[in-house]
């Protein structure tokens, strides 16, 4: 893990009319870090992620992702990140190979490079038979793993993972995390949201958002110590009880 920051957020505010979705957020994510972005539903996580991905303009503040400004260089940000959501982004009626070729193509990866990396990927995931299957015929776990591989196929600097393991069985969930570790070892930064609290502990650092603000940030160990909690679940509950908002 290096000390270089890949995401830098200072005093980020995002308002929708009178509603403040992000209230003065401050955080940074280091290169090759797994950063867990936790919070209750409606706490403002999705808004923040959209801003970091260059999909939404912030109201005020400084936001820098992969060296680009979230106000002025949103297109450059998009070129340098990968994104995967629980809803997937794979086309069900295309084969695995066709999906990969398509996404690599829109990110401008050269044909020859696509070919090499595709072969590497097939070797790594042992998907010799699966690569020509339609995505709709794959089990959920495989879809998720492949969606992730697609999201980092163009070797982005940061990959955003929005509840990537929702509903997946415990073994596949862990295999998925192995893929994340590998990507991180390759120098990619992972920015992840999840509702599985044990997964929160797999992150290098986590932040917990409550009601538009970041209420806690640190390594899982630090947070557990700080809130005198057995596990992240307790940390989370203690934080929310402190506020008690409906």
């Amino acid at each position: 893990m290096s000390e270089e920051n890949i995401i830098e957020v200072k005093n980020l505010v995002k308002k929708f009319g009178n509603f403040t979705a992000n209230d003065n957020l401050n955080f940074s994510v280091r290169k090759s870090e797994i950063f867990g972005f936790l919070g209750a539903n409606g706490a403002g996580k999705t808004t923040a992620i959209k801003i970091l991905c260059g999909l939404l303009l912030p109201t005020s503040g400084e936001v820098n992702v992969a060296g680009f400004d979230a106000f002025k260089q949103r297109n450059m940000i998009k070129k340098n990140i990968g994104y995967m959501s629980q809803g997937f982004s794979l086309y069900e009626d295309l084969t695995v190979k066709e999906n990969i070729e398509f996404y690599a193509g829109i990110y401008g990866v050269k044909r020859s490079v696509i070919k090499t990396r595709l072969n590497e990927l097939v070797e790594k995931l042992h998907i010799h038979e699966l690569k020509d299957e339609f995505v709709k015929d794959l089990p959920l776990g495989w879809k998720q793993k492949i969606a992730f591989s697609v999201a980092i196929f163009h070797k982005p600097q940061v990959v955003f993972l929005d509840e990537p393991t929702s509903g997946v069985d415990p073994i596949t969930r862990r295999q998925f995390w192995d893929l994340i570790y590998e990507a991180v070892d390759d120098g990619i930064t992972a920015f992840i949201t999840t509702h599985y609290m044990d997964e929160a502990e797999y992150c290098d650092r986590i932040s917990i958002m409550v009601d538009g603000k970041i209420d806690a940030m640190g390594t899982p160990t630090e947070l557990k110590r700080l809130y005198n909690a057995q596990n992240m679940d307790d940390v989370f509950v203690k934080l929310a009880r402190k506020q008690e908002i409906i």
Binding site: A40, E163, G167, M197, F236, V237
Partner: peptide, 10 residues
């Protein structure tokens, strides 16, 4: 409780 945060789940 799928997709619901840990507190609401509890």
């Amino acid at each position: 409780t799928t997709g619901v945060d840990a507190v609401s789940r509890r």
